[in-house]
Amino acid sequence: MVSQTSAKFEESLKERPKKRPDKNRKLSWLLLAPVLAFFALLNVLPTLWMLGLSFYDYTLTSYKAPTFTGLTNYSDFVKNEQLSASVSRTFIFLILAVIAQTLLGILIGVFFWKNDKMPGRRLALTLFFTPMVVTPIATALFWKLMLDPTFGVVNYMLTSLGFSRTDFLTSSTLAFPTLIVVDTWMWTPFMALMTLAALGSVPKAELEAAAIDRLPIWRQITSVIWPHAKFILMLGILLRSIDAFKTMDLTYIMTNGGPGDTTELIALSLYRFAFKSFKLGYSSAVSVFLLFIAIALTAIYLYILNAKKKAEQTE
């Protein structure tokens, strides 16, 4: 079924919708209106609100009325090295986790792709996808239990195999890598899913031809797979990066940012400012800053994609 849509797509490439005359302009905006209304009410408005708040000293628990303080919140944030540390920690987390998930996901995805008629494939894929659909509130709590040195099944197995009891979540050296492993467990299925979809978007005929020509594997990847698959793969990486940047449930439940602040990621700090300290102005400034980072990330991804696309078109 994947190839059908591919064929459709090939067809559509040749018949790009041509620019229609002006009489359709009204209709086009009419059709967009509901989505734009939702967007304005639930996205633009809160964003502007947040931007506005970020220039105020506004703390719900303070007896002081909100006062305009200009860029003070931003400079406080930039000056605070504890927070910059948590931003860079978040980036390290993002990079390591997304790389691990992408590589593993591609590998597993290719396995399943190659074996498209394996017995029980549908069931196997269903089992494999479950980690990403169960609420992290439940899975993170259970990981915490499973990794517990006293009551955890992981440590029980380690010790019965003769290894020493390992203290995964409260060791300042192990906690961070452990969270990356759990995040990878949770999200590798997503990258594998994207890989399967990406491979599905490659026209079957081209795969056949490449196999018959016995192209070296590397050439197959660069000249057959990548041009078709890159959009979906890169979108997968982009979505994962944005979500990894926002990781909160995992750290909140498994370590609460500890031991010390070794797993304190920025979304968790932000949560604390907003909901434990009720510093609305300050947390808005941090949010605006994060918004810029996320937009920049996205712009970079899109730039890479588009640059490649343009290069191909001019070839």
């Binding site: 409260t170 060791s171 300042s172 940012g257 500890g258 031991p259 010390g260 602040d261 070794t262 304190e264």
Partner: peptide, 11 residues
């Protein structure tokens, strides 16, 4: 955060 950091050896 600081106290817990001391308990775990980070501080």
């Amino acid at each position: 955060a600081a106290f817990n950091g001391y308990a775990t050896g980070q501080v």
